[in-house]
């Protein structure tokens, strides 16, 4: 299958209830919902532009509730960049990410290649200071041991959400500077306000 140059896929992983959908929705729509609905799988598309070309940022919001390895592997093999979300209020949710990270590592090949894949470890719900189980330092240490980048966010308070995605795309330039620089540079400034109807 030929690589689609104008389609950039970000996959969001994490245990159930850590706020994957909330993060994505906050980024895509700027809203936050209080409701509690598990995700099956959602894909959001956002048009970004790179040097006058239209580029689609495709964000796949996966399910945390039932993990079928086959589905997971498919998402990973299709994904260009990954966001691994845990909840600061649950150490368990951080530990859940390890097997996923390992699958990513296996799927995406050797250490050199892995280093070039943008992966962000994200501690969500950082606003819930009272229930915090994982400190930022611990998360950071974990990220370091995995060789990926780290950020704490709160979809509820909109803390670091935009930065998370910006940083993720920013990381991509390590792999292919000429192409990815455009993406990074264009992300904030010239994101098209205009919605695109993509019916073909």
């Amino acid at each position: 299958m030929p690589e689609q140059s104008n389609d950039y896929r970000v996959v969001v992983f994490g245990a159930g209830g850590v706020g994957k959908s909330s993060l994505v929705l906050r980024f895509v729509k700027g809203t936050f919902r209080e409701s509690y609905i598990p995700t099956i799988e959602d894909t959001y598309r956002q048009v970004i532009s790179c040097n006058k070309n239209i580029c689609t940022l495709q964000i796949t919001d996966t399910t945390g509730s039932h993990q079928f390895p086959a589905m997971q592997r498919l998402s990973i093999s299709k994904g260009h960049a990954f966001i691994l979300v845990y909840s600061c209020t649950s150490r368990q949710s951080l530990e859940e990410l390890r097997p996923i990270w390992e699958v990513i590592r296996e799927t995406k090949g050797g250490a050199n290649e892995l280093a070039s894949i943008p992966i962000m470890l994200v501690g969500n719900k950082c606003d819930e200071t009272e229930n915090r189980e994982v400190s930022a330092a611990e998360g950071e240490a974990e990220a370091k041991s995995w060789g990926c980048h780290f950020m704490e966010t709160s979809a509820k308070t909109n803390h670091n959400v935009k930065e998370l995605f910006a940083e993720l795309l920013n990381l991509e330039k390590n792999r292919n500077i000429s192409l990815q620089l455009e993406k990074k540079g264009q992300l904030k400034g010239t994101r098209k306000l205009k919605e695109k109807c993509m019916v073909m």
Binding site: Q4, N6, V28, T43, T56, K78, C197, M198, V199, M200
Partner: peptide, 21 residues
């Protein structure tokens, strides 16, 4: 899901077009 590689070429894969305000 399976053929999302085709991206915009396939109308079927046009799942969502979200624009940010």
């Amino acid at each position: 899901i399976l053929a999302s590689d085709e991206g915009s070429q396939r109308r079927g894969s046009v799942t969502r077009v979200h624009s940010r305000q």
